[in-house]
Every structure is written in C-alpha cells, then in structure tokens.
Nucleic acid binder design. Structure first.
Length: 499
RNA sequence: GCCCCCAUCGUCUAGAGGCCUAGGACGCCACCCUUUCAAGGUGGAGAUCACCGGUUCGAAUCCGGUUGGGGGUACCA
C-alpha cells in the first residue's frame, strides 16, 4: 500500500450553476457518490460559480434540488441554495473563495510561475488566426513574457489591466488514471493559459486545483472531457507545491449520433425527466448502468445495492449512448414494483384536483401496468374527470362501429348494453357484474365479446385505447355510464342507417 | 491542424488467452394469454468481437499498425 492510499478518501462533485442539473453531471455525481459510499469516504459538493455572468441561484437551486431528488446526499457543501454550508472546508461556493485564489495567484506570480499579460482579446484572436493560417498549434505566443518594464508602464498608463497567465513548464506529464491507466501528455504543446482574468475573476483550471487541495480531495472523478485538461492541472499542482490527487475519467454520455450528449440533440435536464414522471430510483439505476456494470447479469439495483457493488475498476472506457427505450422500460419496472398506495401518492402531482385521493387509489390497479411515465396517467384517467359531453365530443360515429359492422349494428349493441346495465342498481355497479351482463348481451346478439365491447369503450372513455372497460365503468358509476351510452346512441342514430 | 482517449448484436453490456459454435437486457419480429392498450409467457432474427499484421499449441481477450468515432486545444466549465 502506498502513502497515498492511506489518506482519507475524499471525493467531490463540482457542478457549475450555469444551467439546470445536466444528465451527465448527475451521472458523474452519482459515480462519485457511489464510490464514496463504497469505500466509506467523504463526499463533497462544491459549487463552481466563478463565471458570474452565467451562474444563477436558480440553477444552483435546481442542481441541489434534483441531486436530492435522485437520492444523492453529501457530507459537506451547501444543503440549499444560498443557505448555510456544512463542513470544515467551506465556503463551498467558489464565488466566496476569492481571497484564496488571489493569495495563490500572488504566490505563483512571486515565484515566477505566472506572469501578467496585457494582450487584448483582439490581439489574441489575431495571433490565433495567423497560427491557424500557418498550420501551427493555436496557443499563446508568450509575448507578454518578454515585456520590458517600460512596456508594462505603458500599458498601465493606458489604463489596461493585466490578466495572469500560468507559465506552463514544457515537460511531459504522466499520470495513472483510475479508469484508463497510464496516460502521458506533452505540456510543451500547451500554451500558457490564463488563470485570472483581467477583471480579477479566477478561472476554472486554477480554482479547481486550489480548491481540490484546500478541500483535501483525494480522488478526482470527472467526465472524460477533462482528461486532456488534467496535465494542465498537474502542472499547476506542482508549481503550487500541492499534493497530487488520483484522477479518474469516466466515459461521456452520448447522443444517438455518438457525439457528447447535448441540449441541442436530447433532453439533458434532470428536472425534465422528473416532470415527465420518471422515478428517481429508475433514473439512478439507469444512469449507474450507463458506463458501468456489476459484471453479473442482474440489472435492478437500489441505491444501497449500487453503492455496495460499485467499483471504479468496472467502469467502462468507451462512451455510452443514452437509450431512451431502456430508461422507459426500467421506469415501467419500477412503477410496477410499487404498491398501489405508493403509486397513488406519486401519481398525485400528475392528476387533476378534481380527481379525489380515493378515486386515484381506485384507478391505480387499472393503469399501473400501462404506465411508462407517471405523466401518462393524465391521459389514461382523463375520462374520469371529463364531462359526458366532452367525452362524446372526442369521437366520431365511425369510431363506434366494429370492423365489418354498420352504424345501425353499433346502435343496436349500444342499446342492448344500455338496457342490460340500466337494470342494475348503483350498488350492483361492480366490474364483474357489468362484465357478466355485457358478455350475456353480446352472446344474445351473436357478437364476439371483443367487438361488442368496442362501441362501449368508445362511448365510455371517448378513446379506442383505455384502461379495462368494466373497471372504468365501475369508477364512473351508473349515472355517468348510462349518460355516456345515451350520448353515443344519439350519435349513432342521428347518423342513420347509411353510415 | 495538433494532442489525447476509445472500438463486442441497432443500443446498454458480460467477457481479464482455452469454460465463446460470444451470454444477458432494451428494442424489433412471431406465437400464446386477452375486452382495447399494456403487462406477462414462449420462441426467433440480430455481432465474420472495426480492419490488417504479429505473439501463442490456442486470441474478442496480449502487442503493433490502419480505419473509424469521440474529447481537448478560451480572459467557459
């Protein structure tokens, strides 16, 4: 065992509140969380809001809320947006850590590892264009490294403010990635990059290094898009005399065209999935398996089971396409695993107030196997809260007519059903009784039950696809069922025998 | 352009040199069940393990190259 492995394990998630919680960020957070839980380490949430222009408290709130929704909790960090921080290494928002960045930048300047740069964006852009034309790598040309005191005085006099650039040592950097193994980069190919903007705002590559040290992060587990940034971070770590954490780069989540999953091509906000009625358990299970597997053929895992099994060794190296069909399937599995009471509770936000809790509980057995997302319940149960007139307005006469039958036939079936059901009292209006009556009526007409039920289904629910017919009738009650049959009957009769 | 990473059914993956005539799941197709739609059951199609060349008695598994894909290359993160 090396010295490093004896240190306490501390991992962190460092989202930037420049947008709502992204699916990729959620997955990275999940892997960090599972890893921390698996090894008994500490999990830290740090908000990287140095980009003041794009960061908002709303996004910070969205990130925190949705992380909590997924069931991801942290040992240190802000628990609510704008609220108190918990943990000994705070503050946990970079916007409140300016003094540290200033101090470290000053240290770098003093040791000669960094220098001031007066180049304007226009000048930099011009250089970049020229390099591109000359087929040279587009990187900073080091102009301000060779400035004289007079030059500096000149810029100061002009009122220009300098940015601070890190002088990247032109050496090969090697590290042992937790997931990819030995990786080597040549920093001689990397231009000196800005660590503090001219307006004093410290930049990502710098703040991430300063804070990972300050918060004693031992394992940096992040997306593969940071793999080629890592040698920059290591160079900074060395210049600052910090301890180098272990790095692990997890594969990206991809669009169907295999590019990095983006808002343009897919739904990336966790909140959107939440609103459509994906269960957090399903989401977590799905995300965990996007780039990792336990090495067995089991695939339904709770958060606890995941944290028991999760190992970085089994994380894949290749990117994983986000498979909506698979998510849908998993969500259905989780929905069906819920008790009726649990499902009723989860369904509540997706159903109109007009449908009382008791009715919700009663309709659950009818729709449970038909739900892919909780939001699907809205359409599936709409016939319960729609008025009889609304339902009748949903279909055309033709819809009532079974294949190879006429509108007159449909009218006869409808009236036969009406007659059979009208004899029942409200108390007898139970699914099994209704079904027996209707099957009998069908038989008397010489129709197959299936075709006999078709006009009834349309009349009762207004739709050709619905929850089971007789259960639906039971929930609706005698009065509304008869009224809807009458309405359908009226339609079929008005249209006449020619239809 | 340059640097880096990656490569098993359409998709997520199992696979750590012989257990692989490559397994599972999603999706797809068929059948069964059935009051629609689902759910469930059974079966099926689907991968010359990107390609080429090594190493080895033996390679999806190791090595090299090629091709393809992706990421990075900001005074964004």
């Amino acid at each position: 065992m090396t010295e490093d492995e004896k240190l306490p394990i501390r991992v962190r998630m460092a989202p930037s509140p420049t947008g709502p919680l992204h699916i990729g960020t959620a997955r990275t957070s999940l892997y960090n969380y599972l890893y921390a839980r698996h090894v008994g380490g500490t999990y830290v949430l740090r908000i990287e809001d140095t980009d003041l222009a794009r960061s908002t408290v709303q996004h910070e709130q969205d990130i925190i809320d949705n992380l909590h929704w997924l069931g991801i909790t942290w040992d240190e960090g802000p628990q609510v947006a704008g609220g108190e921080d918990i943990g000994p290494f705070g503050p946990y928002r970079q916007s409140r850590r300016w003094d540290r960045y200033e101090a470290e930048a000053a240290r770098l300047l003093e040791s000669g590892s960094a220098y001031q740069c007066w180049c304007t964006p226009e000048e930099l852009e011009a250089v970049r264009r020229q390099q591109e034309k000359d087929h040279e790598p587009p990187r900073y040309n080091g102009r301000c490294l060779r400035l004289t005191d007079a030059d500096r005085a000149q810029f100061e006099a002009e009122g220009r403010r300098p940015a601070i650039r890190f002088k990247v040592p032109p050496e090969k950097v090697r590290f042992d990635d937790l997931i990819r193994g030995e990786v080597e980069f040549d920093n001689a190919l990397t231009g000196d990059f800005v660590i503090v903007r001219a307006d004093g705002v410290p930049l990502y590559h710098f703040t991430v290094v300063v804070d990972d040290e300050a918060m004693q992060i031992s394992h940096v587990i992040r997306g593969e898009d940071h793999l080629s940034n890592t040698p920059k971070h290591i160079a900074l770590i060395r210049a600052l005399g910090f301890r180098e954490p272990r790095f692990g780069h997890i594969p990206l989540i991809l669009n169907p065209d295999r590019s990095k999953m983006s808002k343009r091509k897919a739904q990336t906000a966790i909140s959107a999935y939440r609103q459509e009625g994906y269960l957090p358990e399903a989401m977590v299970n799905f995300l965990a398996f996007l780039g990792w597997s336990p090495g067995t053929e089991e695939e339904i895992f709770s958060m606890d089971e995941l944290s028991q099994r999760f190992e970085l060794e089994h994380v894949h190296r290749a990117g994983a396409v986000f498979d909506q069909d698979r998510l849908d399937h998993l969500n259905g599995v989780y929905i069906r695993s819920l008790t009726d009471e649990q499902l009723a509770l989860r369904l509540r936000p997706f159903l109109p107030d007009a449908l009382d809790d008791q009715s919700v509980l009663r309709v659950v057995p009818l729709i449970k196997e038909r739900l892919v997302r909780l939001a699907d319940a809205t359409e599936l149960t709409a016939f319960l809260t729609e008025t009889d007139a609304q339902v009748s307005g949903l279909y055309e006469v033709e819809a009532l007519v079974p294949k190879d039958r006429s509108a007159a036939d449909a009218a006869i079936a409808l009236s036969a059903a009406r007659e059979a059901l009208a004899e029942l009292t409200e108390a007898d209006f139970a699914a099994d009784v209704l079904e027996a009556r209707c099957r009998q009526a069908a038989e008397q007409m010489g129709w197959k039950a299936g075709e006999f039920f078709r006009p009834l289904r349309i009349a009762i629910t207004g739709r050709s696809v619905s929850p089971p017919l007789f259960g639906s009738m039971e929930l609706l009650g005698r009065g509304r069922v008869l009224a809807r049959l009458d309405a359908a009957l009226g339609k079929a009769s008005v249209s006449g025998p020619t239809a």
